[in-house]
Design a protein around this nucleic acid. Structure first.
Lengths: 217, 217
DNA sequence: GCTCAATTTTGACAGTGTCAAGATGTGTTG
DNA sequence: CAACACATCTTGACACTGTCAAAATTGAGC
């Protein structure tokens, strides 16, 4: 496989399998390419079927090349998860800071948005909250640096909804854990294929909103 | 490895590695032995580290022997999960049918009992509700036959609590999905190691109970 | 006692993550 | 410009996995 020897002008008529062969020995931005390829592979066939070897092949690189950019398979997964937390965090913060929305609307937006995010990116969500990453000492420092503020933000939102009397519960931390558990559980049950009818996830989300909102409010 | 040749009277002074070697070629009840060994292996080191080969070795049998009792690794896992559903179902039904408990007590018992079951048997719970088993067409008919009545029973309990005005929500199915989601989510977040402080799982459960119960009741 | 089916074994294959050692570039210093 | 150091990439190898095919062993029924 000496595809890196060919000059740029000669690398035109090559087999489709080598379509993504790079012109030079050094890839240039392999780390980013690996992340991209990994995300597309995961979206195509699920996390559990992602192997470093298939990933390397798709990136047009040898089996062990990824090890120079990620110490581990776990390290790679953590990096992808971190990206997911950033995306989700931005979206949640944006809705919460929208001055045109009432607290009630924001709460509904949070619940439905969370579950919708998980439903639209099931494999990525599975990765972000899967046991493989968080169990034991598997989580990278980078991942924790991104994820913890995300969790903290949720806590602050819950606290604000409690303060304006929209939702009940005494201890904000416990309340936050319950509500987070609810959206996480609904998302998980749906993603994992336990809820048989998947079309009504929106209805379930709205039902959760109604059950948490104070009737007196 | 001709350990099955030795007569019963000669099989006394053997190495510790062959402690669980059986006296005859045919095991007798290998299927049950495999289930037992699998459960203990899972409890020891988690599901993901369970391999059929290690399992066979612990059962004192060759690598491929399990394939005559389970068509698949997945088949074995489904069988273990089915056992878990039976246990959980019995416990839940027993509490619900206790005539000495008020509806409120039963509800609290259900929420706390569910989460406690998951917390005490994290690996088994992970197996029962893990994606590997339910995703795609992986679930065995046997597993579904055991699990679906379990889900149905939950729905009926929720419906009864709604009818006596203990909890809100209109559509019983949706309400059931939300509450199930809540306990499942709390359990999962704890099992997967995302809640940092694990000692207060009881408090979280009680907070969930309070948030769902109607204030007017 | 012989046959047959159930059960278990050995052999093999493709796939996985990961380490060690060698090959190939790129940049930096004399 | 030459030589060296270093980052990057490759090949080779190892142990481990699930699973199939073919052979071996055993117990039950005629």
């Amino acid at each position: 496989m000496c595809c890196y020897i060919v000059g740029m002008n000669l690398s035109v008529n090559k087999s489709a399998a080598q379509a993504n062969a790079r012109p030079s020995y050094h890839h240039g931005d392999l780390r980013q390419s690996l992340l991209m390829a990994a995300k597309s592979l995961i979206a195509e066939a699920g996390i559990e079927s992602l192997s470093l070897r298939k990933l390397a092949e798709r990136a047009g690189v040898s089996r062990t090349a990824p090890y120079h950019h990620f110490s581990d398979k776990n390290d790679l997964l953590c990096a992808i998860a971190a990206e997911g937390f950033c995306r989700r965090h931005r979206a949640a913060a944006q809705a919460f800071d929208d001055p045109n929305l009432s607290p009630r609307d924001k709460f509904e937006q949070f619940i439905c948005g969370y579950i919708q995010f998980a439903a639209e990116n099931p494999e990525e969500y599975e990765l972000m909250f899967g046991r493989n990453i968080w169990k034991q000492k598997n989580s990278t420092q980078e991942l924790r640096d991104v994820a913890y503020p995300c969790f903290q933000h949720q806590l602050e939102m819950i606290r604000s909804w409690q303060q304006c009397g929209l939702i009940g519960g005494d201890n904000p931390l416990r309340t936050s854990q319950v509500i987070w558990g609810t959206v996480h559980g609904i998302a998980k049950l749906w993603i994992d294929g336990i809820y048989t009818d998947s079309a009504q996830i929106e209805e379930v989300s709205l039902c959760a909103v109604k059950m948490f909102i104070n009737k007196t409010a």
